[in-house]
Design a protein around this nucleic acid. Structure first.
Length: 816
RNA sequence: GCCGAAGUGGCGGAACGGCAGACGCGCUACGUUCAGGGCGUAGUGUCCUUAAGGACGUGAGGGUUCAAAUCCCUCCUUCGGCACCA
């Protein structure tokens, strides 16, 4: 009897040898077709948890599968290393963010190596290293030069006690500051933006990508394209220079139903349009709004609030004066920050009108409408009424007619609006890539010259618990010379959103050592775009949209030659623990280390594949992990026990060959479709079958050995250590991971006999084993002749007989 | 609230218009030169039945179809995202 399966020993042995012999290092000058399989890099939170393994183990299995299929496969790994938690650690534990992050990287790299993946560590990258963020800054300058980076005022979370900007995460329940429980308000600050909205239209197109439908839908809804019109309402307000205020509407056909007008509380005209008598109330309301989060504000079920400014606008179409209100459900960031109130045809407007006793005027009549007031807002199409010259027109035509009139008179125009807002990239923090801009009193904003990059983060910054950016008080950093006039100047102290760093990391892996450019152009061209990108569903919108935007911007600068960064995308589901996404910041992580120590990395990899469909994720539990471990043990003993064909039977050979090809086919197709759970189930079934064959010794020795060889190749991506060990002990040349994937013969994989189900009126009444080649007539006759069936159809009227090839005969009968 | 996804045995799940419960966990029984949480064999949705067999059964309710876990509508629950966590 051979020795026992001891994963600890063999996993360490092979990981060491693979590393020592650079088995997984990828060459750029390989003649085989390339495959770029990328898994989203982890944030350097400190420890790798089960959620990370869930993302990484199955994607490694897929990359290994592609490698065995003969592709030169690049499967790199790195670290998303800038961000808020490092700074929090600096404040609470007195450790510098750099130290904290590098220590975490070291630990995570060690843990990652235990997965047994084919990561090419010679290409590892980290976004917080000057060699990397130099190029993040370089891209910022490129975007700035291209007019895609600009500065503008924007509201931020502000704690008046700490005198600091807060991340959304630092605002705790009820809108309080996590540090001092002071109510958080909004404050307007100069911020940096990337003009992602310039690409809104192109970002809606997915013809060049193979992405899951639901991800495309989420992005499409996030971009939120609406067609309609911009309309000017006239202002006749003493002391106000502006003579009009614009709204965006998707329903120009309802302009004659306007009975009030609402500005966002943050709208620049609010102050000027408020009459003195109402100023106090308006100010109080605006202050209250600044404490609301955006999605509190737009929540549909919420009771409507608002304040009348005391002034009016004139509807250009009717000449009618309507009152101007402010209300929190009108957002400054969408459209023009102003809406026309049409209570008859918008649910929110109707609620508002009812709350404040404003008139409701029906202008679009639903079918069968006879004139009474509507009980709820009618947002559909219909016939125009109460609309003067437009009466009687279907609303779609009316919309066109009104747009034409608006354009003719110069009162408005057809317009398209997007929900997508420009990307706010500046952060008032230390631990990010500094924005490479210098502020000079004489020259204004001056970009840092390329040759002066990187703008290094100062090592001597102080981390005080005020929450204010340490860069602001770091004189050695702030004080600088203007690159243009040489005079004294101040450095920009904002750093970049970490999503900027992660918008181009996939380019750097192709040529990580490149000194004079973010990447080597030829190597980038040979590897990109990424063939398969996998990662958490939580990145469905933001990260993926930002990376797409970045790619398109780079393309327009001539830096890359493709339109989409990720040709194919797969989102694995989220691992939940205690009813919450497993993550360090939520404090509900489960470490894989103990499982790995006890059962081995192969068992943990296998279990994560086996627990269910990869794209679903689910609540973590370890019941059942022993099932995979036992299977690996069964494989071990199946293969390490000598085989002897004592009772060789040609029929058994035939059956084995059929099941072998059927299994190769199933495993291949399941892998191609990321169905790791059913792939493993079919390998288990085949293993169980082989155990019975071995007991009986019914197949010839050469066939047995060939079958075992194929089985090991099929197992190799899932359990790379076990497969390597058994492969070499059976005398095959090192390494199994350089072998080609087994092929299957379609004919051998197909069934010769099938079980036909026989139903009467849709209920299963009998089953019969028949040759797969059975004809429709034969099948129907056979079914009608079965004794079991006769009992249900005798004395009844035969209505029809339905035959589904190779599956079912359904006999439909009715009482006579 | 809005956008997206998911609800199937005691548990993870399979089937994705055609035999509901593959594979595995757990449990039960038996066996084992079995120290063990080891290995092997058999059984295991619920109810009725000695059995053969039958009835019911995929979150709830309705619909389409010869046939629905699967398609459509309404609702409920859970999870992810909602623009400064990453």
């Amino acid at each position: 009897m051979a020795q026992k399966y001891c994963p600890r020993e063999i996993e360490r042995k092979w990981q060491d040898r693979w590393a020592a012999e650079h088995l997984y290092e990828v060459r750029d000058d390989d003649s085989r077709p390339k495959f770029y399989a990328l898994t989203m890099f982890p944030y350097t939170s400190g420890d790798l948890h089960i959620g990370h393994w869930y993302a990484m183990a199955p994607s490694d299995v897929y990359a290994r599968f592609k490698r065995m299929q003969g592709y030169n496969t690049l499967h790199p790994m790195g670290f998303d290393a800038f961000g808020l938690p490092a700074e929090n650690a600096a404040i609470s534990h007195g450790i510098h963010p750099y130290q904290w992050t590098m220590r975490n990287i070291e630990n995570m790299r060690r843990q990652l190596k235990r997965i047994g993946a084919i990561y090419d560590w010679s290409r590892e990258g980290g976004t917080c290293l000057p060699d990397y963020y130099k190029w993040t800054q370089w891209f910022f300058l490129k975007l700035y030069q291209a007019g895609l980076a600009y500065r503008a005022k924007a509201p931020v979370n502000w704690c008046s006690e700490c005198q600091t900007v807060l991340a959304n995460e630092q605002v705790i329940e009820d809108g309080l500051c996590e540090r001092c429980d002071t109510p958080v308000t909004k404050k307007e600050l100069e911020q940096w933006f990337f003009r992602i909205t310039k690409y809104a239209e192109e970002l809606l197109r997915y013809s060049r990508v193979d992405w899951p439908e639901h991800i495309k839908i989420m992005q499409t809804n996030w971009i939120g394209k609406s067609k309609g019109a911009e309309v000017s309402f006239w202002l006749e307000h003493e002391g106000v220079d502006q003579k009009e205020v614009r709204v965006f509407t998707t329903r120009p056909d309802t302009i004659l139903g306007v009975t009030f007008f609402i500005l966002a509380p943050e709208h620049p005209l609010v102050c000027q349009l408020t009459v003195p008598a109402r100023k106090a109330e308006v100010d109080e309301y605006v202050a209250w709004c600044r404490r609301q989060t955006e999605y509190e504000r737009v929540a549909l079920g919420r009771e409507k609030t608002g304040v009348f400014l005391g002034s009016y606008v004139v509807n250009p179409l009717s000449g009618e004066r309507v009152p101007i209100w402010i209300a929190d459900y009108v957002l400054p960031s969408y459209g023009t920050g102003a809406i026309m109130g049409v209570p008859a045809h918008d649910g929110r407007d109707l609620e508002f009108a009812r709350k404040f006793n404003l008139p409701v005027r029906v202008v679009i009549a639903p079918v069968d409408w006879s004139g009474p007031e509507l009980t709820e807002a009618y947002a559909g199409s219909g016939t125009m009424v109460n609309s003067g010259e437009f009466n009687g027109l279907p609303s779609e035509q009316g919309s066109e007619a009104i747009c034409a009139l608006l354009e003719e008179k110069g009162w408005g125009k057809r317009a398209v609006t997007y929900h997508l807002r420009d990307w706010l990239v500046s952060r008032q923090r230390y631990w990010g890539a500094p924005i490479p801009i210098i502020h000079c009193d004489k020259c204004g904003m001056v970009p840092v010259p390329e040759e002066d990059l990187p703008v290094l983060l100062p090592a001597d910054a102080e981390f005080r618990p005020t929450g204010e950016s340490p860069l602001k008080y770091c004189q050695s950093f702030v004080n600088s010379a203007c690159p243009r006039c040489g005079g004294s100047a101040r450095r920009e102290t904002d750093t970049m959103d970490t999503f900027v760093c992660s918008s181009w990391y996939f380019l750097r892996y192709t040529s990580p050592g490149t000194k004079d450019a973010p990447f080597d152009a030829a190597k980038m061209r040979s590897w990109l775009p990424v063939d398969l990108y996998s990662g958490g569903a939580e990145h469905a919108v933001m990260h993926l949209l930002y990376a797409r935007f970045f790619t398109k911007a780079l393309r327009d600068m001539g830096l890359v030659d493709f339109d989409e960064p990720f040709s194919r995308l797969v989102n694995q589901g989220t691992i939940i623990y205690h009813s919450d996404k497993m993550s360090k910041s939520r404090g509900n992580v489960v470490a894989p280390d103990e499982y790995v120590a006890e059962l081995g990395a192969d068992a943990v990899r296998g279990y994560l594949m086996f627990i269910g469909p990869w794209e679903l994720g689910g609540e973590w539990n370890d019941r059942g992990i022993v099932g995979v471990s036992r299977w690996l043990n069964r494989v071990w003993s199946l293969i390490t026990t000598d085989y002897a064909g004592r009772a060789v039977d040609p029929e058994a050979d035939k059956e084995l060959l059929h099941l072998l090809h059927k299994t190769i086919k199933k495993v291949t197709i399941d892998l191609e479709n990321f169905r790791f759970n059913t792939m493993l189930a079919s390998l288990m079934e085949f293993t169980n079958y082989l155990s019975r064959v071995r007991e009986r010794g019914v197949v010839a020795d050469p066939l047995w050995h060939e079958t075992i060889r194929c089985l090991l190749l099929l197992i190799a991506p899932a359990a790379p250590h076990l497969a390597e060990e058994l492969w070499t002990t059976r005398g095959h040349p090192y390494s199994i991971h350089n072998q080609l994937w087994p092929e299957y013969d379609e004919e051998m994989a197909s069934e010769e006999e099938i079980t036909l189900a026989i139903q009467v009126n849709g209920k299963l009444r009998d089953k019969v084993l028949v040759p797969a080649s059975i004809s429709e007539t034969e099948a129907k006759d056979l079914a009608l002749g079965r004794d079991r069936v006769k009992a249900y159809i005798d004395g009844k009227k035969l209505n029809r007989v339905i035959y589904v090839p190779k599956r079912v005969v359904n006999i439909v009968v009715a009482p006579l």
